[in-house]
Write a protein that binds this DNA or RNA. Structure first.
Length: 583
RNA sequence: GUCCCCGUAGCUCAGCUGGAUAGAGCAUCGGUUUUCUAAACCGACGGUCGCGUGUUCGAGUCACGCCGGGGACGCCA
């Protein structure tokens, strides 16, 4: 009757065994376990339908045969055959109780989840801004989604390598160094270095446009940099160091810390090998002076080249991305790589993956699982890419400042009795979490409309709603003089009221939500689950008073409160959000 | 021109890879607090799933064709 961590996987395994006994497994029976509509059960197996169709059998008769083999499940589930052949599983309240008793902390939830990807190594390539420029809204989604994916993969047992593939090498450095040497404002550099770099770049760019002599000088600076000139290298390094320090101020707010920052410059000396290998294995060819790869079998890439070396002999991002894959395989032995990059680069990613696949095949290497984790654009209320009134990119720093300020106004209005410092601290969590969650709560593939009112008005599927549920649970413990870390749940009985049962059933589906979000690399599945869980909790909270005299009832409701708390917090932490004691 | 993505309630979005009567939030209307945070809860209203063919026991989901929106297409990343 004890349930394993992931109930759906347990059902899947048991049904496969049953199918094997019946001789169906060899003919390709798949259980197809899905989360069910609560009215029908907790999980359903749809496999009998597809199988019966293929084998021209009666699906209900087949379903009954399978159900007859499921005796071992009867202690924990009510099993029914329904409709044209669905097998429905409803977890019994007593079984829910045992599950809730076992998974009593973030650590134990992690232990339960960690078998899924134990032994795997994944690199997640995300954020990846250009140095010497400020991060803006365009950099928001990669950072937020990427971090959530890192945490999901790590939670399911993978070793995760966070790699910031920064744009730290390019032609812009000629003009920038030219201006840096002549027009650097030290005071401005101390205040806001990236603003100063942007000013210098614009200045150098304008000067080069209006004066051919300056252009020549800037090109010379670039040549010197690429030739290893000590002065220029020092300036370049300074620019990058200062840029990364500024980026980290943003990352800190999102809880991001990279393991590696291997940008384009790192692969500078590694592209030669790519040219050689791709040429030697017959993939690359000369075309219009450039080195390119075509894919004859592809409707588009048979004529649209993948340019891996420019006509002038220089590398571009195709070459460095190919070198990056090789490095990650040889140096980190990765099993998978997730690229959290704008959907507009899907052509590039498709060409990259296709090329890498053939390259690795021809050189006898094993290709890791390569995933383009694409995402849409952040739009303004006018449905066009989000900009300031004057048409500039919105700086991420300003965006987060505004988020905290708006949250502060709200906290101050709702909880004026809290001390100023605490209201600031709460606002920092709520503000940043609102921005993160607005992004994570919807399918990353589509564009989304950025709306302060929607994300911070705190109604519906928002960070604040979830944080509020957490705060209310913590409040119960606080008011009752109990420590939420050691909840008094001994003697808890199985969930009994409709609201208790609905909540408990939802709690036991956390593993399924995590698995779905991780396997599809789509964090919104977890967000949606947490929102529904918070909703079930709110319903329970309104219907069933927790601190009551009956010790058994009180213990079981405290158990439900506590498990809701740890699952909400674990889930929010997996998405990269911080949580609060009160708000 | 070629290729990719999107089109679901007035608005913003889910819909777990073909399953049961298409779901939430906002907005609108109505109700709930002597009780653990009302930033909450309960209820009502609201749908030719862009349009049309087709595939099959079953299509918002798959195929093809239109219509509408966005994007990418040779040396920026």
């Amino acid at each position: 009757m004890e349930l394993p961590f992931n109930v759906a996987n347990h059902l899947d395994k048991t049904l496969r065994a049953a199918a094997s006994t019946l001789g169906l497994a060899e003919r390709g029976f798949e259980p197809e376990i899905r989360v069910a509509d609560p009215a029908n059960g907790d999980f359903q197996a749809n496999g009998a339908l597809a199988f019966a169709k293929r084998e021209k059998q009666n699906p209900r008769a087949l379903g009954q045969q399978i159900v007859d083999q499921l005796g071992s499940l009867k202690a924990g589930f009510d099993i029914t055959l329904a409709g044209p052949g669905f097998i429905n599983f409803r977890i019994k309240p007593e079984a829910l109780l045992t599950w809730l008793e076992v998974y009593d902390s973030e650590e134990h939830l992690q232990t339960g989840a960690s078998s899924a990807r134990a032994g795997q190594t994944w690199v997640v390539d995300y954020s990846s801004p250009n140095t010497a420029k400020q991060m803006h809204v365009g950099h928001l989604r990669s950072a937020v989604i990427g971090e959530a994916i890192c945490r999901l993969l790590a939670f399911s047992g993978a070793k995760v390598i966070r790699d910031n593939h920064i744009g730290d090498w390019g032609t812009q450095f000629g003009k920038l160094i030219w201006a840096y040497k002549r027009h650097l404002d030290q005071a401005a550099l101390g205040r806001e270095p990236l603003v100063e770099f942007e000013r210098l770049y614009k200045l150098g760019n304008q000067a080069a446009e209006s004066d051919p002599a300056v252009l020549a000088e800037a090109q010379q600076e670039l040549v010197r940099l690429q030739g290893g000139d000590a002065d220029n290298l020092a300036i370049w390094k300074r620019i990058n160091d200062v840029s990364l320090a500024a980026f980290q101020e943003i990352y800190d707010q999102f809880g991001i810390r990279f393991d590696y920052t291997l940008g384009e410059s790192f692969y500078n000396d590694k592209v030669g090998r790519v040219y050689r290998e791709l040429t030697d294995c017959g993939l690359a060819q000369e075309s219009q002076g450039a080195l390119v790869v075509f894919h004859p079998e592809h409707p588009r890439f048979k004529s649209q080249p993948f340019i891996i070396r420019k006509r002038d002999g220089a590398a571009n991002y195709a070459s460095s991305d190919l070198a990056t894959i090789l490095y990650r395989v040889e140096h980190f032995q990765v099993d998978g790589a997730a690229y959290v990059i704008d959907f507009r680069q899907s052509d590039h990613m498709d060409q990259l993956f296709l090329t890498a696949g053939k390259w690795f095949e021809r050189t006898g290497r094993k290709l890791p699982q390569l995933e383009h984790v694409d995402f849409g654009t952040v739009l303004g209320e006018d449905n066009k890419p989000l900009k300031t009134r004057s048409g500039e990119n919105i700086r991420l720093k300003d965006l987060l400042d505004e988020a905290r300020e708006r949250a502060y106004q709200l906290v101050s209005a709702k909880s004026p009795e809290f001390p100023e410092a605490e209201r600031r601290a709460i606002a920092a969590v709520v503000g940043v979490a609102s921005v993160q969650y607005a992004d994570l709560s919807q399918n990353r593939s589509s564009d989304y409309v950025f709306s302060w009112d929607k994300m911070i008005s705190l109604e519906g599927n928002t960070a604040a709603y979830l944080l509020y549920a957490v705060a209310r649970i913590r409040s119960i413990f606080r008011r009752a003089g109990l420590d939420a870390a050691v909840p008094p749940v001994v003697g808890a009985t199985a969930p009994a009221t409709p609201q208790e049962i609905a909540l408990a059933r939802k709690l036991a589906k956390f593993p399924d939500a995590v698995q779905l979000a991780t396997n599809t690399l789509r964090p919104h599945f977890l967000g949606l689950y947490l929102y529904e869980l918070a909703g079930d909790y709110s319903t329970f909270y309104a219907a069933d008073k927790v601190i009551v005299d009956d010790p058994a009832v009180r213990a079981r409701r405290l158990l439900l409160c506590h498990r809701t708390l740890i699952i909400l917090e674990t889930g929010l932490h997996l998405l990269g959000l911080r949580t609060l004691e009160r708000m």
